[in-house]
Design a protein around this nucleic acid. Structure first.
Length: 800
RNA sequence: GCCAUGGUGGCGGAAUUGGUAUACGCGCGCGACUCAAAAUCGCGUUCUCGCAAGGGAUUGUGGGUUCAAGUCCCACCCAUGGCACCA
């Protein structure tokens, strides 16, 4: 007779009990052994919690519970990254204010998240769209401004002339507006930037000490893109201005046969003679319609037009033509290049297209190897005057020295990283706390006026300007405080700003005085374990690191890096395809959770594969976990026998299981941790009865993986207190090894027999025994054994 | 085009990092229980030849190193993710 485990009733019962005891509420002021377990907080979308949410939040909770049972004071907060585009688009479509829809979505998601039964500390919840949060987003802006890290400059935005609205890259794919398919244009606007580039080197060097996936660190290194080279000034033929370029290959200067400016380069207007202006202007207009992604498509045919102007190559003194082409971007380097077609792929294909001259100045380092086409590697200089015969690194040094002597250039380190554009021409974000005096000069809004409230008297219909320009209230507020003729900044902030410091606000969620209390910050930061998707490897994770470093320099926090350890979960797919609304293959967890419970659903997601890989969803696979839960419940509630003396091999199996589960949860291999428990269960089921201690240990091992089931079993087995208050079971390493082992006997690498021996048998004896095995002797007879390989506990290999 | 990661049974996946490939689960087959079905339980299940004992093949493909390769090296094919023509 099996008693049935009813998750619907039992999970609700324990969730209530945990809440009543405030079991998961961390005392941030007092902690001996703090452990900050952080997950990337969700965006409160209108759709319900999907499988991806469960996968993002369930397994991290398992890890956090594991750490708690291992004695850590675990703080596991949750919140909402609540500003952003979807709520605003919803408002444009329906007229429902983003605030209302967002609050409603949060209510729903909180309810659903609670159903998961995670150890969230609900008292510390933050939501970035609430004034008590965004006053700190604004405070951060003021700090950046005060310290000279915020400035304004012109930058292009995607603009749809038909919808009269600024578009995100996502809304402007293929260069057309997602709503009306009109060609998107690049429109210049004066916007606010934060000087993240000032921290480029610090952000680069800081990576070395982080316990992050190597691939993420590599991505960040490439994103920052430090490269060393030189700036070279080219004289212009017939103009007094000079044209400065950056190059990583100053050694190839003798091979520079033309130059290319970004079409938007300010010098273009000055140097282009009248007879070329028509073509140049037409080309510029065409380029304005292209997104950066289109411009940077390597496969497309190179385009460009000559400006008609010329520069002088400072090494050869030759007159070389200046072109404009969209493969050169204004935002990188100086927005201009010297083209060395013989030694650069892109210059080569451009020169081929437009029949421009090529001069080989670097030869391969090996003799007799002919150079065909483009040679972009290092080598030895030829046709290069004073550089002839020098190897590339030496040639670089000599060229830089020469340029410096002649006043023609200097060594320069260039970064690919750009300053952070924080302005957004949107409604649903934190207003930038800046006002402009009647002369148009910006002034910071004094801190006493924070939170600088987002006005509500705007309609969401696009007008071609930032939505806040419609607000009468905002303008009146500014005039009342600052005087007639003053106007507010109408842009709001990038939501990445909100999420760049939320881990600090969890620690100070109700503090209106300070961003964070320095003592609490010192205790809890950096975050011990940060879990989230790999898609944030570059943007969010670099912004957060930058903000933390800046705050350290401002004296606000005591640490330089926010996240000590980072882990990326994989993706759950459906029949191999990423789940998405457009494909219509999104699996809703609700029906499964209702039927099987949170524990089974979470465990199934963990069982599908290694957490870092994700896995493919299957409707039927979940049954296996459900059976496991039912069987475990039945076994532990009906077959415990206090009088039983446990067999030695069962004790050994138990200790091996503890070892495996401990190691596997520690390295996020939840799938094999669960498999280990299944194996143990299979063993225990063969017994007539099981010892109470074994049953209790089993129940505790389930604690992180199936918290509700574990709690129910623990209490039925007479355990005191909650599972999360117990010590994680320990194992005796001596007991995890068996006294007798089965080894394989191979002849010439092929397994011919098995041999069961005592683990400490001397090798001579084992080999002798092995030779006598019938199926081994058969293969050895008449042959000479050349070699005997014995790997204790594993195998014997006879080579004949 | 570049970078990163990965290809193991019918399916999801495991394999202590060079040591018995296919753990665990799904599915499937046979059996028990049942009037019957579901659920549950037991046995089997990489492919192939064989009644069996046993043999042969097998970790995307082709080579190589080694007593021994899913694991290391070389070349190629395929899939997924990321991308910023970075001078």
């Amino acid at each position: 007779m099996s008693k049935e485990y009813n998750p619907g009733v039992i999970e609700a019962k324990w969730q209530k009990a945990w809440e009543k005891k405030s079991l998961f509420s961390a005392d941030l002021k007092r902690s001996k052994d703090p452990y900050y377990a952080l997950v990337m907080f969700p965006y409160p979308s209108g759709a319900k919690l999907h499988v991806g949410h469960w996968f993002a939040y369930g397994p991290p909770d398992t890890h956090a519970r594991f750490m708690r049972m291992r004695g850590k004071d675990v703080f596991e907060p949750i919140g909402f990254d609540a500003f952003g585009l979807p709520a605003e688009n919803f408002a444009i479509k329906t007229g429902t204010p983003p605030e209302a829809s967002t609050e409603e979505n949060v209510q729903t998601m909180v309810k659903q998240l609670k159903r998961m039964g995670c150890m969230y500390d609900w008292d510390k919840l933050v939501m970035t769209s609430r004034p008590e949060y965004y006053r700190w987003t604004q405070w951060l802006f003021l700090k950046m401004y005060e310290k000279g890290l915020a400035y304004r400059k012109e930058a292009p935005v995607n603009y749809c002339p038909s919808c009269q609205t600024v578009l995100a890259n996502e809304q402007a794919q293929d260069g057309t507006c997602e709503r009306c398919s009109t060609t998107v244009i690049q429109k210049p606007l004066t916007q606010w930037f934060w000087k993240i580039t000032q921290y480029a080197d610090a952000l680069l060097e800081g990576l070395d000490d982080l316990d992050w996936p190597e691939k993420t660190k590599t991505m960040q290194r490439n994103w920052i893109g430090r490269s060393e080279g030189a700036e070279i000034h080219f004289a212009l033929d017939g103009h007094k201005e000079t044209l400065t370029v950056f190059t990583t290959r100053p050694d190839t200067l003798f091979g520079a046969t033309y130059m290319v400016l970004a079409p938007e380069h300010p010098l273009v207007e000055k140097i282009t003679p009248k007879d070329h202006w028509g073509a140049v202007e037409a080309y510029r207009e065409a380029v304005a319609k292209k997104t950066e992604l289109e411009r940077t498509d390597l496969n497309k045919t190179k385009t460009g037009v000559p400006t008609g102007a010329h520069a002088i190559n400072p090494a050869t003194k030759e007159r070389i033509p200046i072109w404009i082409a969209d493969y050169v971007l204004l935002s990188y380097g100086t927005g201009a290049i010297m083209a060395v077609p013989a030694h650069d792929e892109r210059d080569f294909s451009f020169a081929q297209t437009f029949q421009l001259p090529m001069v080989t100045v670097v030869a391969p380092d090996k003799e007799g190897e002919p150079t065909e086409g483009v040679y972009a590697e290092e080598g030895v200089n030829v046709h290069s005057g004073f550089l002839d015969g020098l190897k590339t690194p030496e040639a670089k040094k000599r060229m830089i020295a020469w340029l410096e002597d002649e006043g023609l250039g200097q060594a320069k380190t260039q970064y690919r990283l750009r300053d952070w554009l924080v302005s957004r021409q949107r409604y649903w974000g934190a207003p930038i706390p800046i006002v402009y005096d009647p002369q148009g000069k910006p002034h910071p809004i004094p801190e006493e006026h924070l939170p600088w409230m987002l006005p509500t008297d705007v309609s969401f219909k696009p007008t071609g300007k930032s939505p806040l320009t419609q607000s009468q209230e905002l303008l009146e507020r500014v005039e009342k405080i600052f005087g007639k003729g003053w106007i507010p900044e109408y842009d709001t902030m990038d939501t990445f700003v909100c999420s760049s410091f939320y881990y600090l606000r969890y620690l100070a969620q109700d503090d209106d005085e300070r961003l964070v209390d320095p003592t609490t910050e010192k205790t809890w930061m950096p975050v011990d374990m940060y879990i989230g998707g790999a898609e944030h490897a570059c943007m969010h994770l670099i912004y957060a690191r930058f903000v933390m470093r800046a705050l350290k320099d401002f004296g606000i926090v005591g640490h330089e890096e926010p996240f000590d350890r980072l882990f990326h979960q994989g993706t759950i797919t459906n029949q191999g395809a990423k789940m998405s609304k457009s494909k219509g293959n999104v699996v809703s967890p609700d029906a499964f959770v209702e039927r099987y419970g949170s524990d089974v659903f979470r465990m199934y997601l963990m069982f599908m594969g290694p957490y870092s890989e994700g896995g493919d969803w299957s409707d039927t696979g979940i049954k296996g976990i459900d059976r496991f839960v039912q069987r475990a419940y039945t076994l532990l509630t009906t077959k415990v026998n206090k009088k039983i003396v446990q067999k030695e091999e069962l004790t050994a199996a138990l200790h091996r299981t503890i070892k495996r589960v401990t190691e596997d949860i520690g390295r996020f291999h939840f799938n094999t941790a669960i498999a280990a428990l299944m194996e143990l269960l299979n063993l225990l089921e063969k017994e007539d009865g099981i010892a109470l201690e074994t049953a209790r240990t089993f129940a505790l091992l389930l604690g992180p993986l199936a918290p509700h089931l574990s709690e129910e079993l623990w209490s039925q087995l007479g355990g005191k207190g909650f599972v999360m208050e117990q010590h994680w079971p320990s194992f005796d390493p001596a007991l995890t090894t068996l006294s007798t082992v089965k080894i394989a006997v191979q002849v010439n690498g092929k397994v011919r027999a098995e041999l069961t021996i005592s683990a400490d048998s001397p090798s001579q004896e084992v080999i002798a025994q092995a030779k006598e095995l019938e199926n081994v002797a058969k293969y050895l007879s008449g042959k000479e054994v050349v070699k005997e390989v014995y790997v204790p506990g594993r195998l014997i290999n006879f080579v004949v």
